[in-house]
């Protein structure tokens, strides 16, 4: 149904002996990146989780000694007091709400733009289609630090929009250092990836099905809503989850373009770690963000599973 049908199922049934040899060889070949991830992501994350629950011994000893305001567990009974501290902290709760709202708003705009561009490419194409898709990919190649800096300047007190408005005697609002630029920056940096995924999914919808729906008398929007978007549903869901997870944990965009407070949790993590020297609180925030990301990730895994089922790979 989607693009992977053309690529064919990734796993092909083969004779038993070859399959057994492939099992060992496949496992050995796949191990190096897995060991890397296990050692440098899995292991530290487990350590950090222990630290967030108050286990300050072993490899956590140094960081617990350096850090301030560390909650310590009694023996082997974990303590949730670091989490309790954060969840009774009004500023953290405000930032949590801001993070979720910025993520939802930015993701919605990104996916709407991506679907719009993808649909235009599918149905009209032409010069405008080419220009649109080329434009949407540009941010992929601009380092986020530069993008944030450029966006901050563009919407600042003496930026382009205010300068143009001033030519007509209009006093345009200052958007720099507000959540508006955080949303703008998040949309700007996330657009290429979502557009590539969504438009490739839309391109894969067979023209014959669209023609059939048209012949049956369906209007253009009916075709879009009932045939094209549902058939490209899996790539759209994948694009949505990746975009949302990326924005949820982002640091550079809110750090450069956002207000001091309230701001997103990525900035709080950095502040608690470096400026406040409270590593345990930084880690607690990381796990709260990760918990939200895991919820989104579950949707991604489910969507992939559904698509694999449709193409017969499972």
């Amino acid at each position: 149904m989607t693009a992977e049908l053309e690529a064919g199922p990734a796993v092909v049934v083969r004779p038993a002996t070859a399959a057994a040899a492939g099992r060992t060889r496949g496992l050995l070949m796949a191990l190096p990146p897995m060991v890397l991830i296990a050692f440098f992501i899995g292991f530290p994350v487990v350590l950090a989780f222990g630290f967030s629950l108050g286990f300050t011994g072993g490899l956590n000893r140094t960081i617990a000694l350096i850090g301030q305001n560390v909650h310590t567990a009694h023996g082997i009974v974990p303590t949730l007091s670091a989490y309790a501290e954060m969840f009774t902290n009004a500023r953290f709760l405000g930032d949590l709400v801001v993070t979720v709202v910025v993520t939802v708003v930015s993701t919605t705009i990104v996916i709407a733009l991506a679907v719009g561009i993808g649909l235009y490419l599918k149905f009209s194409g032409g010069l405008i289609g080419k220009v649109l898709s080329a434009l949407a990919v540009v941010p992929l190649f601009i380092p986020v630090v530069i993008a944030s800096w450029a966006i901050l300047g563009f919407y600042s007190a003496n930026g382009f929009l205010r300068s143009v408005a001033a030519q007509f005697g209009v006093d345009f609002p200052i958007w720099s250092y507000t959540l508006v630029t955080v949303v703008i920056g998040s949309v700007w940096t996330s657009l290429p990836f979502a557009t590539l995924l969504v438009s490739s999914g839309l391109q894969a919808v067979p023209q014959a099905m669209i023609d059939a729906a048209r012949d049956a008398g369906a209007s253009f929007w009916r075709v879009v809503a009932s045939v094209v978007v549902p058939m490209a549903g899996v790539p759209i869901i994948i694009a949505t989850t990746f975009t949302a997870i990326g924005i949820l944990g982002s640091f550079t965009v809110p750090y450069f373009t956002g207000p001091n407070s309230p701001n997103m949790l990525g900035v709080d993590m950095s502040n608690y770690f470096s400026a406040f020297n409270q590593p345990q609180q930084a880690v607690v925030i990381a796990f709260i963000v990760f918990a939200i990301a895991s919820g989104i990730a579950a949707v991604y895994v489910w969507a992939n599973f559904r698509s694999a089922k449709e193409s017969g790979a499972v």
């Binding site: 440098f40 992501i41 530290p44 994350v45 350590l47 950090a48 630290f51 490899l59 956590n60 140094t62 960081i63 997870i245 949820l248 944990g249 640091f251 949790l265 990525g266 993590m269 950095s270 770690f273 590593p279 930084a282 880690v283 925030i285 990381a286 796990f287 963000v289 990760f290 990301a293 895991s294 989104i296 990730a297």
Partner: peptide, 13 residues
């Protein structure tokens, strides 16, 4: 999908 900043903070130890 683990937040990058959180990962680097965890990696520090």
């Amino acid at each position: 999908s683990f937040p990058k900043m959180g990962l680097f903070v965890s990696l520090a130890a």
